[in-house]
Write a protein that binds this DNA or RNA. Structure first.
Lengths: 231, 231
DNA sequence: TCAGCCCGTTAAATATTGTTAACCCTAATA
DNA sequence: TATTAGGGTTAACAATATTTAACGGGCTGA
């Protein structure tokens, strides 16, 4: 796990130095630029994880720089450092495309919170963006969306149907222990919950009829299997 | 909930008195010291929640005092009061482990903001960090402005809609527990509040129809998920 | 083989959630 | 002070989800 690289564009030399020192101290790798033009040059040379920039800067303002950067690398998160007395319409304009903003004067702690929040979010979305999908036969179970996409159209599933089918699909062609599934979904293996599960199995089987290759078979006294035969 | 104890070390008698009086008025329990040495003695005698200190002081300067304090109690947050443009002082202070700084002259409101921010942060360290802009699908939620910017225009949100959507957006693609959201927004999980939340969910879903990739899924008996599908 | 349990299915009963509209405040305005 | 507009809550009703009940068929072991 290497340090996150931050592009810091700030023309106030005091604040710039403070930012750089502070962010370094907190385990980041900041590159400080004094104006928008320098920021643009650094951006072209290297790859960054996050960009912090002032709005009002000589040579090239933050708004312009942000737009240019977004054109090249749309997913680079940008955190604007804005002055409090900035006109509303400017703020309005720069909202588009900014991932966040913080108004001066701000505390270092506030800034750090923002930076970590953005990085956490973007890093997460790089990993977990993939919504879970299970495929079996002509079906696709979109678990996160609670949708079963089959050969005869999409079926909206209820939460319980969704959970149950996911367990079966995850163990495709393998036995799913009855009691195990019950504990997973209902928390405990009781008579009524078991009957409930049977009701849902029945509903799911109805949908699965859309593809004759797919069926749920019962292993008496043991559990169930989602089996996928050949064409 | 007792008053937070503040150790205030400031050699300027005018500023010191003003600080003490103001902080008392705001419900804190400040102890005023005139120099670093006195500050050190008070620190040893009592337990404090936060320390505000000047840097340039007779007998023992702020840096020295801060270092000594940190050696004994590393987690005591320190807020430095620095003269304007003393960049090196600020950096040095942050390096020592100050949690924040504020440059003189400052307004009392400004100071209060810092103090409350630090105390809030240290008292409940597991606070959810709050961004100002949340993006999901073709939407941008501008939390501060209570505006949801979508593919078919901007929607002004009421504060409840705003809060609710923020919670969902912060946990994008993940389950948000019903009761948790209720406690966050309404303070308690009661029948009528729950019904109220359902009303707001309905309103939000109407707006989210502007982008078919985005939807709020119900997990029966559990909570909700803001789902962002693929194109 | 047959009693008894296990399971499949359907339907009814409950519980939870979705939606709309009426109602109640409060704060701004005339 | 009366009026109004907006936000929030409550009420009422609709739609779904889940559980329970009821009935019947099938499997299994004595």
């Amino acid at each position: 796990m290497s340090k996150a690289k931050l592009l810091v564009v700030e023309d106030d030399p005091n604040l710039g130095d403070i930012l750089k020192e502070y962010l370094e101290m907190k385990g980041y790798e900041p590159t400080l630029c004094r104006d928008g033009e320098e920021g643009w040059n650094k951006f072209k040379k290297d790859k960054y994880d996050l960009c912090l920039m002032d709005i009002m800067m000589p040579k090239k303002d933050g708004f312009t720089l942000a737009k240019e950067i977004k054109k090249v690398q749309d997913d680079l998160p940008i955190l604007f450092l804005t002055a409090k007395n900035q006109k509303d319409d400017i703020i309005e304009g720069l909202r588009i495309g900014a991932d966040d903003y913080i108004t001066k004067p701000f505390s270092m702690e506030e800034l750090l919170l923002r930076v970590t929040a953005i990085l956490r979010r973007t890093q997460k979305s790089q990993e977990v963006t993939q919504l879970k999908v299970y495929k079996f036969g002509d079906f696709e179970l979109h678990y996160d969306e609670q949708i079963l996409d089959g050969p005869k159209g999409k079926h909206k599933l209820t939460s319980k149907e969704n959970e149950l089918l996911r367990i079966l699909a995850a163990e495709m062609n393998k036995l799913v222990n009855r009691s195990h599934a019950l504990k997973q979904i209902w928390g405990d293996d009781s008579y009524f919950n078991a009957r409930s599960m049977d009701v849902y199995l029945s509903k799911i089987r109805k949908i699965l009829k859309d593809d004759p290759k797919v069926q749920i078979i019962t292993v008496h006294g043991e559990g169930f299997k989602l089996i996928v035969g050949d064409a």
